[in-house]
Nucleic acid binder design. Structure first.
Lengths: 107, 107
DNA sequence: TTGACATGCAACCAAATGGTTGCATATTCT
DNA sequence: AGAATATGCAACCATTTGGTTGCATGTCAA
């Protein structure tokens, strides 16, 4: 099972969202590869990746001395389905009510 | 414009997500009304609501001595569209590739 | 008008967070 | 073997965060 709280908390930080973006552009990157261009030490990036891994947003595979990082979009998908879908329905209901109101002439 | 970072950070806390749930069940609640059943002081709830308001996830209207809180699902919708949609596509691409692989017989 | 109720404001506090530095370990390459 | 490279681990630090308490202000109602 997915822990939605871990996912939400992991997504709360812009650096972590940026790391997901980087993995989206190129999957299976190593830690040092993900560090280039960032104004952060390797250890900071490593911590962020650990949090993403804990939330199951990235999966890792150790290959020799390298650790390869892979994006896992499934938890994001589950959030979208279970949580955001609900509020999306609320939004559409509002639009639907508005539409009805506009269509119905004043009594 | 919506500040996605404010929205993500606002959604990161379980108490705040719970407040959104409460407003989803019944819209237009007052501060004290939103406090009942919560193991928190009114001031804590007030701070959470302020953060949600800053992220434009709730809108408020002052009516006499009451402050009414309304859920605004639009920022959640925008997050879903702009940000989650991208990773959703990634997920579907993976499934699509898998499907092709399964359909294509070995050469 | 006076008391009760709803909210606002500010100072304070402990714990979590995001980051650093320093050193250790493991693997690759010459 | 020995140097270079990739990662891991731990202690430490400043700031943010989530919460509290105490008091002030505004509004309704008897």
């Amino acid at each position: 099972m997915m822990d939605a709280d871990l996912v939400f908390r992991a997504l709360a930080d812009p650096s972590r969202r940026h790391l997901l973006d980087r993995l989206f552009e190129k999957n299976g990157q190593t830690l040092t590869e993900l560090c280039v261009g960032l104004e952060m030490t390797r250890q900071a990036v490593s911590k962020h990746l650990a949090i993403l891994e804990e939330a199951n947003l990235v999966a890792t595979r150790k290959q020799g001395r390298d650790k390869l990082h892979y994006l896992n979009p499934v938890p994001i998908h589950e959030i979208a389905n279970r949580w955001i879908g609900k509020y999306e329905r609320a939004r559409l209901d509002v639009l639907s009510d508005l539409k009805k109101t506009l269509e119905k002439p004043e009594p």
